[in-house]
């Protein structure tokens, strides 16, 4: 939450802040101020606890009625589904046609083939990775990062091998983050990074993604990362030859848990094909807390750029005026 839409004074903690805390709509800086207030003010603390209990209770109602629409007005549901599907088919056809026409005009049949391949093969990846999170500049190429496909395998040995093949033989156990509500989305190679690097992504049920960048560095004195981005919380650290960056639109507490899980998996980092050599300690101890940074302190609302429902609707090629609700 920020003070943009409401013009609220951010120098004091007010009622709205307490509710925004309960709803997870405070940025980290604001959250710290509100939590500090709660430490001192028992009354407010009790109120916030009550608000939170109510939210949890409503969550239980929601969970219990998750499929409450089942069997309700089936003919209307069918009609709605048909219209949505038809609209998406039209948009998809328009996209393919536009891509094919543009490609054939500019680059000929070869580019057109690539466009169709992207259309057919990569839609889930394109949706999964939009909108783009901040990309660490150093090592990982920043906004110039380019990714090539490649999906991680479920099998542990194969994922270890995949990582080793792209990280100069270094590999690690990727953590199981299901307890944090995060499902693995996949992995990609960063083609134009300054060092061998990959990106692994997880997403929660809302589709909010956490990206883990892993790279290999050789210089012990190398500063692992600087960061370019727009308000995303990020964590950076180094373990031996591996450098890590976690970027996500989530609270720092959750990101810290992910970081610790990754650190634990990286404890076993080793060359995949040779006996494990003695790993020189990096500038950051393995048990050190990662450095936390907010990419752009000026951006007061890290969630402001989220398009929470973007995955629901496929983007249309042509600019269309948004439909006005009826």
């Amino acid at each position: 939450m920020n003070d943009g839409p409401t013009g609220r004074d951010r120098s004091t903690v007010d009622e709205a802040d307490l509710h925004a805390l309960v709803d997870g709509q405070l940025d980290d800086g604001r959250k710290a101020a509100v939590l500090a207030r709660l430490l001192l003010d028992r009354t407010d603390r009790e109120r916030v606890e009550a608000y939170r209990r109510h939210r949890v209770a409503l969550g239980k109602v929601r969970a219990g009625l998750e499929r409450y629409g089942e069997g309700f007005a089936p003919e209307l549901q069918r009609a709605l589904a048909d219209r949505l599907a038809a609209a998406r088919r039209r948009a998809s056809i328009a996209r393919v046609a536009a891509a094919g026409l543009a490609a054939s005009l500019v680059l000929g049949l070869g580019v057109a083939t690539v466009a169709l391949w992207r259309e057919r093969v990569q839609p889930t990846i394109a949706i999964a990775y939009e909108p783009e999170l901040a990309v660490p500049e150093f090592t990982f190429g920043g906004s110039f990062a380019r990714y090539s496909g490649g999906t991680l395998e479920a099998d542990r040995e194969r994922s270890l091998a995949w990582l080793a093949s792209h990280l100069r033989g270094q590999t690690l156990d990727l953590p199981d983050l299901r307890e944090l509500g995060l499902k693995p989305v996949g992995g990609q190679v960063l083609d134009e990074a300054q060092a061998p690097a990959v990106r692994i992504a997880w997403a929660d049920e809302r589709g909010d993604r956490i990206d883990l960048y892993i790279g290999v560095v050789t210089s012990q004195g190398e500063q692992a990362f600087t960061l370019a981005g727009e308000g995303h919380v990020s964590l950076h650290w180094r373990q031996g030859p591996l450098v890590f960056a976690l970027v996500g639109r989530t609270g720092s507490a959750k990101l810290l848990k992910v970081a610790h899980a990754v650190m634990h998996g990286a404890d076993t980092a080793r060359p995949a094909t040779a006996p494990p050599p003695r790993v020189e300690p990096g500038p950051v101890a393995e048990d050190a807390r990662p450095i936390r940074a907010v990419a752009d302190p000026a951006a007061k609302d890290p969630t402001a750029k989220i398009e929470p429902t973007a995955p629901l609707v496929e983007p249309a090629v042509a600019k269309e005026a948004p439909a006005k609700p009826l």
């Binding site: 997870g24 509500g181 996949g186 929660d204």
Partner: peptide
């Protein structure tokens, strides 16, 4: 409490989503 664990998923099942 807001995070609902997802059971029974592994990379093969969710990649691509």
């Amino acid at each position: 409490t807001a995070a609902d664990p997802v059971d029974g998923l592994d990379f093969a099942e969710v990649a691509p989503p």
